[in-house]
Simulated scan of single mutants.
Amino acid sequence: MSAASQIRHPSPRDLALIALGDETPTPTERHLRDCQVCRSALDSFLRVLKAGRAGATESVQPPDHVWETIRRHL
């Protein structure tokens, strides 16, 4: 059994906190180096943070079907 399979995957919450700059426990650091799935998830959080920190120059409007779905659920 490899070291990567011996540690449980970090939760999405933990990955988000790591992306925000929280201290990463050493076993999790090792896991992120070895586990492409978790590294990819962390990279996604980092891309979202980068985009959010850059600020949007224009608003993004969701497609009409999104608003229709929201209305149905209200």
Rank of each mutant, 00 (worst) to 15 (best):
residue 15 L to I: 03
residue 58 E to Y: 04
residue 74 L to W: 06
residue 8 R to M: 07
residue 1 M to L: 13
residue 41 A to V: 03
residue 55 G to L: 02
residue 63 P to K: 14
residue 30 R to I: 12
residue 37 V to G: 00
residue 64 D to L: 07
residue 54 A to C: 03
residue 62 P to C: 06
residue 32 L to V: 02
residue 12 P to T: 09
residue 11 S to A: 07
residue 49 L to A: 07
residue 3 A to D: 12
residue 69 T to A: 15
residue 38 C to W: 09
residue 72 R to K: 15
residue 39 R to C: 05
residue 8 R to F: 01
residue 38 C to P: 09
residue 53 R to N: 10
residue 36 Q to N: 10
residue 16 A to V: 00
residue 1 M to H: 13
residue 36 Q to H: 12
residue 60 V to S: 11
residue 69 T to L: 15
residue 56 A to K: 11
residue 37 V to K: 12
residue 28 T to C: 05
residue 35 C to V: 03
residue 57 T to M: 08
residue 33 R to F: 06
residue 33 R to A: 10
residue 44 S to T: 14
residue 10 P to R: 02
residue 63 P to F: 05
residue 23 E to G: 06
residue 22 D to I: 00
residue 53 R to Y: 04
residue 39 R to M: 04
residue 32 L to I: 07
residue 10 P to Q: 02
residue 61 Q to F: 05
residue 2 S to I: 00
residue 25 P to N: 05
residue 59 S to N: 10
residue 54 A to G: 13
residue 64 D to E: 14
residue 52 G to W: 00
residue 10 P to L: 02
residue 27 P to C: 04
residue 22 D to P: 00
residue 22 D to L: 06
residue 67 W to T: 15
residue 6 Q to C: 07
residue 46 L to K: 15
residue 17 L to T: 03
residue 19 A to H: 04
residue 33 R to S: 03
residue 21 G to S: 04
residue 19 A to W: 01
residue 30 R to E: 11
residue 66 V to M: 05
residue 41 A to K: 14
residue 46 L to V: 10
residue 56 A to T: 06
residue 74 L to M: 11
residue 54 A to D: 11
residue 4 A to D: 07
residue 50 K to I: 00
residue 3 A to C: 04
residue 7 I to V: 10
residue 36 Q to R: 14
residue 17 L to A: 14
residue 10 P to G: 01
residue 36 Q to S: 14
